[in-house]
Simulated assay, not measured.
Amino acid sequence: MCPPRHFAVEYAINPWMDPSKPVDAGRAMAQWAELRDTYRRLGHTVEEIAPQPGLPDMVFAANSGTVIDGRVLGARFRAAERAAEAEHFRRWFVEHGYRDVTMPSRINEAEGDFAWTGRLLLAGTGFRTDPAAHAEAQEVLGVPVLSLRLVEPRYYHLDTALFVLSEATESAPAQIAYYPEAFSAGSRRVLARLFADAVPADAADAECFGLNGVSDGRNVVLPLEATALASRLADRGYEPVLVDISELRKAGGGPKCCTLEIRK
């Protein structure tokens, strides 16, 4: 995670960003700290990277890389405003002992568009990540990759429209939650075929960034407003944990956007 010390909305690179609307940096920091502390209370280890001046979106660490079995595929951003973030995160991985670090040749916004199910890497495209980056991810990470096409501009990254609730094990398949209307017709059919037991989300869930959740297989961290989705998850046996990310949402981010999951 990366503290939002320099958080601001100074440009618009997604439909949620409006530089004319005021941003409370102090409130953003408090919300981020509560999210970090929530993970710690749930028993998770949180590593932090130092934020850099001039990179207000660096708080959205999910876009910094994809880590599976200790292999790291870095990021290459589509927007020039975020391009410099990639090198800061690459250095962090190297300085923290990761030796198998590959920087992509194709545009790849990391866990923004990549979701690991335990067996498959679901890979989004349509607005940010280059479709050719999916083949590159498969080659670098050595895992099968399934392409999914996003068609709704407000849900420009896979992690705004889908998240993994529980990874696949030898005895159980992976389970996901997703918002079908964010995907092309073909991608919806693929998801329905692969994840027949998926938790459905509606427009209200998506609009509050409810699909930008983080699950450890039991506890599911969601935006405070995602009460309907939380109820459906509780009915499935999960433990919803609601957090306020309203200030960070002004830049198009939620719990998952702020969180890179490191799978060693």
Results as ranks from 00 to 15, higher is better:
Met1Ser: 13
Pro4Ala: 07
Pro4Arg: 09
Arg5His: 10
Arg5Asp: 14
Ala8Cys: 07
Ala8Glu: 12
Ala8Ser: 14
Val9Gln: 05
Glu10Gln: 15
Glu10Asn: 14
Ile13Gln: 02
Trp16Pro: 03
Lys21Asp: 05
Pro22Ser: 11
Asp24Met: 01
Ala25Phe: 00
Ala25Met: 03
Arg27Leu: 08
Ala28Trp: 10
Ala28Ile: 03
Ala28Glu: 11
Met29Thr: 09
Ala30Asn: 10
Ala30Lys: 13
Trp32Gln: 04
Ala33Lys: 14
Glu34Leu: 12
Tyr39Pro: 02
Leu42Asp: 04
Val46Gln: 04
Ile49Met: 15
Ala50Thr: 15
Pro53Thr: 04
Gly54Leu: 09
Leu55Cys: 13
Val59Arg: 06
Phe60Gln: 08
Phe60Ser: 12
Ala61His: 06
Asn63His: 12
Ser64Ala: 14
Ser64Gln: 14
Thr66Ile: 14
Val67Thr: 03
Ile68Tyr: 04
Asp69Trp: 01
Asp69Lys: 11
Asp69Arg: 15
Arg71Val: 14
Val72Ile: 06
Val72Lys: 04
Val72Tyr: 10
Val72Arg: 01
Leu73Cys: 12
Ala75Asn: 07
Arg76Glu: 02
Arg78Ser: 09
Ala80Phe: 00
Arg82Thr: 07
Ala86Trp: 11
Arg91Glu: 11
Val94His: 00
Glu95Trp: 00
His96Ser: 00
His96Cys: 02
Tyr98Asn: 01
Val101Ala: 08
Met103Gly: 00
Arg106Tyr: 13
Arg106Ala: 13
Ile107Gly: 02
Glu109Gln: 05
Glu111Leu: 11
Asp113Ser: 08
Ala115Trp: 00
Gly124Asp: 01
Thr125Leu: 06
Thr125Trp: 03
Thr125Cys: 13
Gly126Lys: 11
Arg128Lys: 14
Thr129Pro: 00
Thr129Tyr: 04
Asp130Ile: 12
Pro131Arg: 08
Ala132Leu: 15
His134Ile: 13
Val140Ser: 07
Leu141Ile: 12
Gly142Ser: 07
Pro144Thr: 07
Leu146Trp: 10
Ser147Lys: 13
Leu148Ile: 05
Leu148Glu: 11
Glu152Ala: 15
Tyr155Asp: 09
Tyr156Ala: 09
Tyr156Lys: 10
Leu158Val: 04
Asp159Asn: 15
Ala161Tyr: 10
Ala161Trp: 07
Leu162Gly: 03
Leu162Gln: 01
Leu165His: 07
Ser166Leu: 05
Ser166Ala: 15
Glu170Phe: 08
Ser171Ile: 00
Ala172Pro: 00
Ala174Met: 05
Ala174Gly: 10
Gln175Ile: 10
Tyr178Arg: 06
Pro180Trp: 06
Arg188Met: 10
Arg189Leu: 14
Leu191Met: 14
Arg193Pro: 00
Arg193Ile: 00
Leu194Gln: 13
Pro200Cys: 06
Ala201Gly: 15
Cys208Asp: 05
Gly210Leu: 12
Val214Tyr: 11
Gly217Ser: 03
Asn219Gln: 06
Val220Glu: 08
Val221Ala: 02
Glu225Ile: 08
Ala228Met: 10
Ala228Cys: 04
Leu229Phe: 11
Ser231Lys: 14
Leu233Ala: 03
Arg236Phe: 04
Gly237Ala: 06
Gly237Thr: 00
Tyr238Ile: 04
Val241Gln: 12
Leu242Ile: 05
Glu247Leu: 03
Ala251Thr: 02
Ala251Gly: 14
Ala251Leu: 06
Gly253Val: 02
Gly253Ile: 08
Pro255Lys: 02
Cys258Arg: 11
Leu260Glu: 09
Glu261Thr: 13
Arg263Pro: 04
Lys264Thr: 05
